[in-house]
Nucleic acid binder design. Sequence first.
DNA 1: ACCTGAACACCGTTCAAGT
DNA 2: ACCTGAACACCGTTCAAGT
Lengths: 194, 194
Amino acid sequence: MARATTASAQAWTDAAYARFQSGGLRAVRVEVVGRDLGATKGSFYWHFGNRQDLVAAVMRRWEAEQTDAVIRAADAGGDARGRLSALFAAVAASAPHRGGEARLYVEASEEGVGDAVLRVSRRRIDDLSELLVQVGFDESEAARRATIALAAVIGLQQLAVAEDSSPGEFGGAALTATALAMTVSRDEPTSRLA
Amino acid sequence: MARATTASAQAWTDAAYARFQSGGLRAVRVEVVGRDLGATKGSFYWHFGNRQDLVAAVMRRWEAEQTDAVIRAADAGGDARGRLSALFAAVAASAPHRGGEARLYVEASEEGVGDAVLRVSRRRIDDLSELLVQVGFDESEAARRATIALAAVIGLQQLAVAEDSSPGEFGGAALTATALAMTVSRDEPTSRLA
DNA sequence: ACCTGAACACCGTTCAAGT
DNA sequence: ACCTGAACACCGTTCAAGT
């Protein structure tokens, strides 16, 4: 309806999203984004209740744009095993998301928008889990393995962030291959180890 | 030497460490810690160059206190296999470190003290790696698997933080058992057992 | 040598006032 | 309806001044 309103709130969200992509949620500051926009803080507080609302808008956009490009990369074709290795390779290749996702889990919960990140995580676990069922795991074992695999990806991102340097010891193809092997192999009866 | 100086800087570090333990590195703020201490910011800037120095002192303490209680829990006895499962169980049991370590990877790198967290991580990887060598993996495969396992632990912490609730779907014993099974099993690549 | 207190910059938030 | 500009609170940092 109010086109101008929508456009202007949109402009704030656009500019905030750009800041988010390069510097994480913490880079989404009202004053800085306003400067990008050539607007004052008064303008912002007309369109949004507070900074958290802007952060929430950024996360809504992020969640919507998580059209799961990585997962789709694995849908290229082939059997479940081929798709699995394509998926792991795609994740490894997209790892240099330096500014964004690695920090997102902690930041999102600190900013009160952890739920968006959780929904995306669960979706990824579900997708991976489905592939694991296709290679012979039962549902619950597949779900657990998918969870661990996603956790490993997240953890490697954390380690890479702490490491700071770009390629680093936590990003190699060898690690990806190992992670895949750990996810799909099972010579040990789980019962015997617990 | 200057006993008073040492004591007072010590007092700042003590109070800062308490804040860190309950609220992470971000809770280490000069004004707040000063309030805890009944001192002014002027006092702080006599003992420290800036806030980062205080954060660094906190991290030095943290690293020193990482006497690896978890790893030692695994040293209780038994063979490598038993120690491995004890280690995983101990990690799972100590997971509810709500205030501290989960946020540490991101926070530490943002505060410029990511190296401390990296050193502790490498130490943990080395310890786990050694156990994996004892159950038959070669050095490099063991190192990779240990890295993935640590990453999974870190990632599960991230997910739990995002989830916010205490017990949660990312902290169960079943997941721990699965992680252990994934770490020690290998029917896929190097298929021979001795 | 150690500390206080006031000042400044930065950013989130509010609000009276403009158009 | 939409925005400006000034104000305030908060916190990191500096510094002249006290003891």
